[in-house]
Design a protein around this nucleic acid. Structure first.
Length: 261
DNA sequence: ATGGTTGTTGGACAA
C-alpha cells in the first residue's frame, strides 16, 4: 500500500459534510484535495475534519469556489501558497498548493468557462496559461509535483458520453483541450489515462439534471497530473463511483491516486 | 426543442 491522494469536488462542503465524512472514514486517504467548498475560509468546518484526523490548508470565499488540501495528522502540510501565481488581481479561491510527504501537491478548481461568449471563457484560458507557466517553473527544478482537482476539461472524446453535443462547450472546445495538452506537453502524466488507456465510461461527474446519473451520462473532468518524479512512483489511479449514488451526493465523485513510498 | 437539479442565498447566478 502506497501513499494515497484523493481529489473530490464536493459542491458545498457544508451540505456534503455527512457524505464526505463517511467516505473519509472508510477510504482514509493520506492526502485529501477538495474543491467547490462554497464557504468562506473562516466558516470551513475544520473541527469535523480534525475529528477525522485531517488538517491542512483552506482557501475559501463566500458562496462560490473554495479549495482545500488536507492531510492525515502526522503528515505535515508546509510552505502553503493560496493562489495561482500570475495575476495579483484574481481574487477567486481556486488554488492551494503545499509540500506534503515530500511532494509538492496542488488542489485546483479550474474555471468552468461557460458561457463561451462571456468574459468567463477568456478567464479560463488565461488561468490555464498561468497554470502552465507555474508548472513549467516547478518542473524546471525537478519538483515532484502532483496537480489534482476539477480541471473542467474533457481531454478526449472518450471522456464524454456524447462528444458531438459538447463540441462548443467550454469544457471540450478545441482551445480548451489544446491548453490542456500544452500542460501535458510540459512532461506531465495524466495518471488515470496512463494506467487505463482504453477504459470507457470512466466518468467523474454526472449532472444533477435530466437523470444523468441513473442513465450513466457523465464526463471525466477530475484529474491528476504528475511530474516525472511523481509519475515514476505511480501505482494506481481509480474512480470511486459509490459516493455519487448516495443521498445528498455531490455531482462529482472522488478520484484516488496511489504512489509508491 | 425544452426542461430537467442543486447550492448559496434570499432573486439570480453558477454549474
Amino acid at each position: 500500500m502506497g501513499l494515497t491522494i484523493a481529489t473530490w469536488n464536493v459542491n458545498s462542503v457544508k451540505a456534503r459534510l455527512p457524505v464526505v465524512s463517511g467516505w473519509i472514514a472508510s477510504a482514509r486517504p493520506d492526502v485529501l484535495l477538495l474543491q467547490e467548498l462554497k464557504c468562506e475560509t473562516a466558516s470551513f468546518p475544520a473541527e469535523a475534519f480534525a475529528a477525522l484526523g485531517y488538517e491542512g490548508a483552506v482557501v475559501g470565499q463566500k458562496a462560490y469556489n473554495g479549495v482545500a488540501l488536507l492531510a492525515r495528522r502526522g503528515l505535515a502540510v508546509s510552505d502553503v501558497i493560496t493562489a495561482l501565481p500570475g495575476d495579483p488581481d484574481d481574487g477567486q479561491a481556486r488554488y492551494v498548493e503545499a509540500t506534503v510527504a515530500g511532494l509538492r501537491v496542488a488542489s485546483l478548481y479550474l474555471p468552468n468557462g461557460n458561457p463561451v461568449d462571456s468574459e468567463k471563457y477568456p478567464y479560463k484560458l488565461r488561468w490555464m496559461e498561468r497554470l502552465r507557466a507555474h508548472a513549467a517553473r516547478l518542473l524546471a527544478d525537478e519538483v515532484p509535483l502532483v496537480l489534482g482537482g476539477d480541471f473542467n476539461i474533457i481531454p478526449e472524446p472518450e471522456d464524454v458520453y456524447a462528444p458531438s453535443e459538447w463540441r462548443e462547450d467550454a469544457l471540450f472546445r478545441p482551445e480548451s483541450r489544446r491548453a490542456f495538452r500544452a500542460l501535458l506537453n510540459l512532461g506531465l502524466t495524466e495518471a488515470f489515462r496512463a494506467l487505463h488507456p482504453a477504459q470507457p465510461r470512466a466518468w467523474t461527474f454526472w449532472d444533477y439534471q435530466a437523470g444523468c446519473w441513473p442513465r450513466d451520462l457523465g464526463l471525466r473532468i477530475d484529474h491528476f497530473l504528475l511530474a516525472p518524479r511523481a509519475a515514476d512512483r505511480l501505482l494506481s489511479c481509480t474512480i470511486d463511483r459509490a459516493p455519487r449514488g448516495q443521498e445528498k451526493a455531490s455531482d462529482h465523485t472522488p478520484v484516488i491516486l496511489e504512489l509508491s513510498h
